[in-house]
Design a protein around this nucleic acid. Structure first.
Length: 694
DNA sequence: TTCGGAGGTCTTTTT
DNA sequence: GACCTCCGAA
């Protein structure tokens, strides 16, 4: 039971400026804190919760705080415990998705799911869709999955009847698989609340104080969830900054900030405008840039920090030179590696930096991108674990039913599914009848039976053992390691790295077992399904960090490189012609700038291999930084260049193709070029990155 | 029927 | 470089 131990409020309040203090002390009723970058919003949130628990005496169990990542949740929790010197493990803090998963596990039955449901990520969704899209050429899996998601978060309404049918089919299979996607977690929680007022009231009663961090990036569904959660006590505390809203593509909606005052007319609005993070020059750049946005209310950030160095601008020929200059800068700086972050707009841009960092032997880490948990071997092992928890999870089953190869190929699987459909068994259950199947090779049948029995054995085993023991046993029963060595070669680099990954996975599972009260397979699977990119980032080591600007939200670094500042890259080409999206790109650039404490280095490359036939022009965002605080390095950039120029092919041009070598253009028509090579005549996309003029 | 290799296409951001 | 499809070998 929670024991009250009051602490002296002055201990907390002395660390805060007047506005921050006002926000902390405003404990009753709705509060909206508009907090500019670096103005101490996390501090306000942390101190407020510490104040509620330590001074007012609120039970941690009655508090919910929505954070943007699990890592942020953990850090906030630690800081609060340090401030007030008591255990607050009973407090509910985490992402919306973790909150919903937790609630849904308790009440899944009310919605017709069972509580061991599996959470599908984008790849799982895509795999599921593929099982019924088959040869549909009109609608591609990726497209359908993103449409489904857009539909669920309210940013898309399907009109095409075929698409609508496919969506229904998706929902039906998801339910059969006892699986939920990320959007379902939120939507079903809302449905749970709306269909079961008793359940909703339970949580609305329980959470006397509701907090939201990064409020500008909540979507409509999350907003509705907040309304439900705070419907009894109406103590809702939201912290956000419209200039840092960068998740519009995921349904984040500025209306949430505007409607807040409508839904809570008694709301207290507090603005935090003093920046504690950056130098005057950095802040000046950020302020000038964001002033070009029209869809904003506007605020004036100021700082007492020193003026600092100018913003450095490095211009280069191509991405290799860009990476080299960046890495040389780090190498010659004399600063610890951990002071640096290299930011980029798209994950693909990390490659050149990685290469050069390796050449220089500089340790680095990449956040996101090709994620650890998305590597094939890791996904395979996790699929094995998921099947133990929820054998109806067909996506996971299909992933491993023939890995390592057991002779269960396409035809056999078709047979199994057909049999299952006719007799009302799910795919896993059909395996037990393998013996009686006609027209299937005896050896295949035998291996199907063996597979079925092994999985059943492991399910029993998992009742008595923790995830670590289960995973080890599973690897040995399935002979997964020898499968790796035999397919990739005993001592190949590939096999070695895969085996290393498996060991790394085992290591992290072992840590999970140590940290958690109930280290079951089920709990492990849930926890990793909800991990965010940043959660996996370890910022303790002295190494350089690389990540997308999106992932850098909420973080700060002494030195920040913002790379790839060209039109079509940053701002990204997809935002052209859409004011709203262009402004989001600008907010993204603004977020990037305001991550820096001491120094910002902008880089520009006039050529990039993704657009091999274009000379890229300088990003408009560079031109929006006042010239008097920029210091140029390399070829100086004329600030009046035109837009992208695409090289067009004409008949008779001599070209070079990476695979086919030299050739001559025969014909150009609708985006394709017909070329005669030594190997014959080929049709190539005009913007193929393997093709260039010579 | 399964499996592996070859060649072609595509890549914005993420819980 | 990841993923898809197509094709030929076992």
């Amino acid at each position: 039971m929670f024991t009250l131990k009051k602490i002296n409020p002055d201990i907390l309040l002395k660390d805060l400026n007047p506005e921050q203090r006002e926000a902390v002390l405003q404990v009753d009723g709705p509060v909206l804190v508009i907090a500019g970058a670096g103005s101490g919003k996390t501090r306000v949130l942390t101190y407020r919760i510490a104040y509620l628990i330590g001074v007012i005496g609120v039970n941690p169990y009655e508090i919910y705080a929505a954070t943007f990542t699990n890592k942020a949740a953990q850090e906030m929790k630690d800081r609060i415990e340090n401030l007030i010197g008591m255990d607050i493990s009973q407090m509910w803090i985490g992402t919306f998705h973790s909150l919903c998963a937790r609630i849904l596990r308790r009440h899944a039955g009310l919605l017709g799911y069972s509580s061991n449901f599996t959470i599908y990520d984008r790849t799982d969704q895509k795999n599921l869709v593929k099982t019924f899209l088959e040869n549909n050429t009109r609608i591609k899996p990726q497209k359908l999955v993103s449409r489904i998601s857009a539909y669920k978060n309210g940013s898309y309404i399907p009109e095409d009847p075929e698409e609508l049918n496919l969506m229904k089919k998706y929902e039906q299979i998801m339910k059969e698989n006892n699986a939920l996607d990320f959007d379902d977690l939120l939507l079903l929680t809302i449905r749970l609340f709306e269909e079961n007022p008793g359940v909703k009231n339970y949580y609305a009663e329980k959470f006397k104080y509701v907090h939201v961090d990064e409020y500008q990036d909540t979507n409509r569904t999350q907003y509705r969830l907040l309304l439900h959660l705070s419907s009894v006590h109406r103590n809702i505390f939201a912290v956000g900054d419209e200039d840092q809203s960068i998740y519009g593509f995921r349904g984040a909606d500025i209306r949430n900030i505007l409607d807040f005052e409508k839904d809570f007319p008694e709301a207290k609005i507090i603005r935090l405008e003093q920046n504690y993070r950056s130098t005057k020059n950095i802040l000046k750049a950020a302020t000038k840039v964001i002033a070009n946005n029209r869809y904003r209310r506007g605020k004036t950030l100021w700082t007492e920090n020193p003026e600092g160095e100018k913003i450095k601008l490095i211009s280069t020929r191509d991405e290799i030179e860009e990476a080299e200059k960046v890495v040389q800068y780090i190498f010659n700086s004399g600063r610890p590696y951990k002071d640096f972050v290299i930011l980029y707009r798209t994950n693909a841009q990390s490659r050149s930096f990685e290469q050069v960092l390796r050449n220089y032997n500089i340790p680095y880490t990449i956040v996101g991108g090709i994620k650890f948990y998305e590597r094939k071997e890791i996904k395979d092992i996790l699929a094995y674990l998921k099947i133990l928890v929820n054998s109806r999870d067909e996506v996971s089953l299909l992933r491993i039913i023939n890995v390592p190869p057991r002779g269960i190929g396409k035809k056999t699987i078709e047979f199994l599914r057909d049999f299952g459909h006719r007799n009302n068994f799910n795919l896993f259950e059909t395996l037990q009848f393998a013996e009686n199947f006609g027209g299937i090779r005896a050896n295949t049948k035998l291996r199907m039976m063996e597979f079925y029995e092994n999985i059943n054995f492991m399910r029993e085993y998992a009742r008595e053992h923790n995830v670590y023991e289960v995973t080890k046993k599973m690897l040995s029963i399935m002979e997964y390691r020898s499968y790796i060595t035999s397919t990739f070669g005993e001592n190949s680099i590939e096999a070695e790295s895969k085996l290393e990954n498996i060991d790394a996975l085992l290591g992290s599972i072992a840590r999970f077992v140590e940290d958690v009260d109930e280290p079951s397979v089920e709990n492990y699977i849930t926890s990793i399904s909800l991990l965010t990119d940043i959660d996996e980032w370890d910022n303790k080591d002295n190494i350089v960090t690389l990540m997308t600007v999106h992932n850098a939200k909420g973080l700060e670094f002494p030195v920040v490189f913002i790379t790839g500042l060209e039109e079509t890259v940053f701002p990204h080409i997809s935002s052209f012609g859409n004011d709203y999206e262009l402004e989001e790109e600008r907010r993204l650039f603004h977020v990037a700038l305001t991550r820096a404490k001491e120094k910002v280095i902008l880089t520009f490359a006039s050529r990039r291999s993704i657009r091999p036939n274009s000379i890229l022009s300088v990003s408009r965002f560079i031109k929006e930084v006042p010239e008097d605080i920029i210091e140029q390095d390399g070829v100086s950039i004329s600030f009046t260049q035109e837009n992208v120029s695409t090289v067009r092919y004409k008949v008779g041009d001599n070209v070079y193709h990476n695979l086919f070598g030299f050739g001559r253009v025969l014909k150009v028509s609708d985006g394709k070029v017909e070329i005669r090579f030594k190997v014959g005549i080929k049709k190539i996309r005009e913007d193929s990155n393997k093709l260039r003029k010579v």
